[in-house]
Design a protein around this nucleic acid. Structure first.
Lengths: 349, 349
DNA sequence: ATTAAAAATGTGTTCGAACACATTTTTTAC
DNA sequence: GTAAAAAATGTGTTCGAACACATTTTTAAT
């Protein structure tokens, strides 16, 4: 079996099988209307020569414009989402040669109503696919179902929502990300008392935080045979500072904290100003304020959730499906990047 | 300026400018034989509408087969290179729709002669481009020059070689990677004595190791105002074990070691068997033996150099150039991934 | 003013897959 | 055995860019 220098075309297959290209086409696409004899001879050639269609030519002819609607929170409410916008722009740039129409729609991340409304709008646009950041679990289930009924493909990223109506999820294994944080704190803080801090977040992040906590605790129960030394703390504005200071006073053995949301900088600020002992801090996301405390040394590690790449892969997955007829994988898990002051810049482009 | 739903074609431009598509083509490709009047009216439309050629159609017509030769060490000598092979295979798969012929050529990483011979072979093949792992600095400079004289594009990865004949380098900032290791050890080992270990490597890695050491030392001199507590150790087979054990006995304050090559597992084995104090270990590369010690807890961190992605990006850079006529960037720096026992699996595909 | 040469412009074909449509062959019915 | 229906097969066009080639227009020369 020699490697062919020139790629086979439908015309070549037709010639080799002694039929016309139309017949080969019908065999390839299972359109029927082919005699058993022709079917066999074409298949014989196909098996022999393993033909691969030229995706470029296929796509050139196909003049359908695939429309993709992206539904994410408005970055002006939460700058966490800014990299997503850039990831989507990058995907648009990369695939501008193809017949794609990608439009982004923002919702207010603090309002389920806004989420529902924006999705109603998108539903009315009847796109071929939706890429969704399903911040609100219940509502997301609902809209996913509606899209699905209309034959619109629903892919998600950032938040995992279990539903048959959702084709793909791009994101991280949050349980494992809790374990990563645990391993880091385990090395840093000499097995003293540790705190998990769920900071200033509404129910919309409940699952997120729970999974991270579960991973964190499981790591320690596996490795130290006891998780009693871990304390969970829920802090909310405006009493964050007083409660945290009081907690640290009452628990002098706490040597490390794990903040499950992207607001670690708020804790870093308080600890940096009030505490004298060294307290290790681990948080999430490379937002500006966090990185400042990371470089300064107050925050020890940040876990990078790579929102830009999540959004980018969410789009490429759909493009691969529409343009290159690849099948959509159920989940796409991104690596859990550990970031310290010295490698942070590489993850912020 | 409204966003066009349908992309403009040459025909559209021709219609709008009141000329034929042939004339538009001549203007776009600066082929001359165009009157000033026609030139102006076409350009007026082009400026107005910002036309982008359909890369798919362009490529369909272009039936030149671009040949790329990849020159890397034989993975059977050093399994570090196995992921590179997979990265190249992935690139081949992804771009099989295009007119590409990518062939890999192996050399013996312990023999400069083999390196030179393989490159002579490739030179005789006269490919359009070469992707090179330039393990041997001087020899690489030489062959790059020869390729360049023949009009063959030379891209490199893994090792940085300064030369005008080399168009692109994909890899990591080794100085910064030394700093990453330093930051990690700084957090782990309570500012005791540290050791840098250059392990069992010939001159071919000299620059590599020096840069990492420089980054490592610079971090500490910046952050602690003294780098006297860092000791550099060069170990070679067969005396690794005796020398290391002796060193650790003579330096009881050493609490962390930084191994600048991929052979950290050799150190981990010795320390794991002979030492009773906790010594933090940081090394490079997710090879099987290293990961085993990472999971077991003897090695604390590994720095991932992502050889698979390096090779993959080396190819995509060339494909982008040949097929999509993008310009080649001088360097492509990959993030310096910090790996512990909990996130290792995500980097090993 | 006529013709040849030069310049400008337009037309037609190609790449490979997809599909509409035309043509041929086979089957069925009476 | 013949006509109509059904099945099978082949042909031609399209997508957009590139380029060879044909045609028209302009310029130069006598």
């Amino acid at each position: 079996m020699s490697v062919m220098d020139k790629k086979l075309t439908i015309k070549d297959i037709a010639r080799l099988a002694g039929v016309s290209k139309g017949t080969v086409d019908r065999v390839l696409h299972k359109r029927g209307k082919v005699s058993q004899k022709a079917f066999d001879s074409v298949n014989a050639v196909l098996n022999e020569m393993d033909y691969e269609p030229n995706l470029i030519a296929r796509n050139l002819k196909n003049n359908k414009i695939y429309s993709i609607s992206v539904v994410i929170p408005d970055p002006s409410f939460d700058s966490y989402w800014l990299p997503c916008v850039r990831g989507i722009e990058e995907a648009i740039r990369e695939f501008k040669a193809f017949n794609l129409s990608i439009k982004t729609h923002y919702f207010n991340p603090e309002s389920t109503k806004s989420f529902i409304n924006v999705n109603e709008t998108v539903l009315a646009l009847a796109p071929d696919a939706v890429l969704l950041a399903p911040l609100f679990y219940k509502e997301a289930l609902n809209v996913a179902e509606k899209y699905h009924e209309e034959g619109i493909i629903v892919n998600t990223f950032n938040n995992q929502v279990q539903s048959e109506a959702i084709k793909n999820f791009v994101g991280q294994d949050l349980y494992q990300s809790g374990r990563v944080a645990a391993r880091l704190l385990d090395l840093l803080s000499n097995n003293e008392q540790l705190a998990i801090i769920h900071l200033n977040e509404s129910y919309k992040n409940a699952v997120h935080m729970q999974e991270k906590e579960r991973g964190f605790r499981t790591y320690f129960s596996e490795n130290n045979g006891q998780d009693s030394k871990i304390i969970t703390l829920k802090l909310k504005n405006p009493s964050i500072e007083t409660n945290l200071v009081q907690f640290l006073e009452e628990n002098p053995n706490v040597t490390g904290v794990f903040i499950t949301t992207s607001k670690a900088y708020q804790i870093a600020k308080i600890i940096g100003e009030t505490e004298h002992r060294k307290i290790a801090i681990i948080g999430y996301d490379l937002i500006e304020e966090n990185v400042a405390y990371l470089k300064q040394g107050t925050i020890d590690f940040l876990i990078h959730q790579n929102p830009k790449r999540q959004a980018y892969l969410g789009i490429t997955c759909l493009v691969d499906h529409f343009i290159f007829s690849k099948e959509i994988p159920k989940t796409t898990l991104l690596p859990i990047d550990i970031v310290n002051s010295e490698n942070a810049s590489f993850y912020m482009e």
